[in-house]
């Protein structure tokens, strides 16, 4: 009754399950200011959607949830458009490089393995760092100590040339670090089928020293553009985008995202980071588990048409 046939994935899925999946990921997306792709892509694969279609369709779903997420953040004055624009310029260049890299890996038949390994390494390292940092802040706050404000502190980044003013973030820094961060995120976005929030949020907090609330708004703003470019590249080069699946996911995601933004406002920055870190680590462990434990089915069939 609730089964629906997906025209590109060529299989039948339960529409309620996919709506729920979109809503759950959208909720986390709105709450933490991440695209949620790092969750959605593996979850789609666990539901039996082929990895290539999960990556492209996941990217398209993130476009939708990021639009409504950005508007909600925009009204709170949390989007630094200047910073976002610089990140997007780097991001588009990185996305192109990522698609070329993925195509090269597909030709030697190891794209799946490299994607999983990259996920495990990035999610594992970032999750651990975020958890450690945020727990330290939470403990200090509980002990009644004041945590020194980080913005205004100087590090090596402030010595770089091409300085730009980012009034919203109260920063006057070189354009080079945001461009590089944008490019790295774009690369990962197209390669892993994620928005890249799990990279860009810590990078902006710890490297650029931007205020956490502005970081979340700006991250979700640039994710719209990077995932839109990734969607177009996958649709054009790989024909792996399933429009029907994307529509179902985006409807769920938009609804979930709105509740997520409100839920996020009930918590402090370090609490949000601690919760996000736990989710990130859980996904990393699950992916690692699949790589290390002997699979039930050792054999797999790979269609060679179009390769």
């Amino acid at each position: 009754m609730f089964q629906v046939y997906l025209p590109i994935a060529e299989l039948s899925v339960n529409i309620l399950v996919m709506l729920g999946l979109g809503a759950a990921v959208g909720f986390l997306s709105g709450m933490f200011g991440v695209g949620g792709g790092f969750l959605l892509t593996p979850l789609l694969m666990f539901s039996g959607i082929p990895p290539a279609i999960a990556v492209a369709t996941g990217a398209n779903q993130i476009v939708g949830t990021s639009v409504s997420g950005t508007l909600a953040q925009w009204r709170r004055g949390n989007v630094d458009v200047h910073m976002g624009a610089v990140l997007i310029v780097g991001g588009v260049a990185g996305a192109l490089a990522g698609v070329l890299l993925l195509k090269a890996l597909q030709q030697i038949g190891q794209s799946g393995l490299i994607i999983s390994l990259t996920y495990v390494v990035f999610l594992g390292v970032i999750g651990t760092l975020m958890l450690w940092e945020s727990l330290r802040v939470i403990r200090r706050t509980r002990a009644g100590k004041t945590v020194p404000a980080r913005s205004g502190q100087h590090n090596w980044i402030h010595g770089l040339p091409f300085k730009m003013r980012f009034p919203q973030s109260r920063l006057y820094i070189s354009a080079i670090p945001p461009l590089v961060i944008g490019a790295v995120v774009g690369l990962l976005a197209s390669f892993l089928g994620v928005g890249g929030g799990f990279i860009i949020v810590p990078a902006m907090i710890y490297l650029l020293r931007m205020p956490t609330n502005i970081v979340i708004g700006t991250a979700i703003f640039q994710i719209i553009f990077v995932t839109a470019v990734v969607t177009l590249l996958h649709a054009t080069l790989n024909h792996t985008l399933d429009l029907l699946l994307a529509l179902i996911l985006v409807i769920g995601g938009v609804i979930g995202g709105q509740f997520g933004v409100r839920a996020g406002h009930r918590f402090r920055g370090e609490q949000l980071r601690a919760m996000l870190a736990v989710v990130v680590l859980a996904v990393a462990l699950r992916l690692l588990f699949d790589l290390v434990v002997e699979p039930v089915e050792l054999y797999s069939i790979i269609p060679l048409t179009g390769v």
Partner: peptide
């Protein structure tokens, strides 16, 4: 697909 996602 992008337009539909933005619209949604």
């Amino acid at each position: 697909a992008v337009a539909l996602a933005v619209l949604a």
